[in-house]
């Protein structure tokens, strides 16, 4: 009978070996798009390692940054440097409202009910009965951190949309602008 600890360590070892293979393929690969995909695989495996090493908060932050945003940025850079133009539908978002709402929700409930409320906590507090729960049926969601991370992801994504719009300016226009400045 295999023990739970051994199973955890087995998953860790398998994840480590898979990340080793993915890193090797990333560095050796000549096609940069394939290299980015292997790098995303390595990031996914690192997320599993974070979760197994009892760091669920890090896993929550690491998934959108390293599996979503970072390969997107590198892929756009590859597209630009290989001169294949792509269409971009930019969509701004007011996701910062989500952060405000998360920060204010507990305060508003506390003001209405007259109880103590807590903000910015990932675990229950003694003197404050009102707050966002840290745990939903034995799964840690880290209280406000979960909603902060979700809103931050959307806010950073909308900011990156602006970056992508800058990156999607055609190269000829940029070059003529740069050379025009150089002649003046």
């Amino acid at each position: 009978m295999i023990e739970l600890n051994t199973l955890t360590y087995l998953f860790m070892a398998v994840a480590g070996v898979v990340s080793l293979i993915a890193t090797y393929l990333t560095i050796v690969e000549n096609d940069l798009v394939k290299a980015v995909i292997f790098s995303a695989l390595q990031s996914t495996v690192y997320t599993i390692i974070y979760y197994l090493l009892m760091a669920p908060d890090i896993a929550l932050v690491y998934i959108p940054v390293s599996v979503g945003l970072y390969p997107a940025v590198i892929l756009f850079l590859i597209k630009k440097t290989e001169r294949t133009e792509g269409d971009l539908e930019g969509s701004g978002g007011d996701s910062l409202i989500g952060i405000y709402l998360t920060a204010l929700a507990a305060v508003l409930i506390g003001l209405i009910t007259g109880l103590n409320a807590y903000v910015f906590q990932n675990q229950p507090k003694l003197d404050a009965p009102v707050g966002i729960p840290a745990q939903v049926s034995n799964a840690l969601i880290s209280g406000t951190l979960f909603f902060f991370n979700l809103s931050e992801y959307l806010a950073v994504a909308s900011g990156f949309t602006l970056v992508f719009m800058l990156l999607s300016i055609p190269e000829e226009i940029v070059r003529s602008f740069i050379s025009g400045e150089a002649h003046e």
Binding site: M12, G16, L20, L32
Partner: peptide
Amino acid sequence: LFNTLLFSLFFNAGISLYGIFARPSLIK
């Protein structure tokens, strides 16, 4: 098994350092 994870991480660091110093492409 835990040492396997540790050695994988150290090899990852070594391979990525090789990539930083020896590969020619700036994107790589």
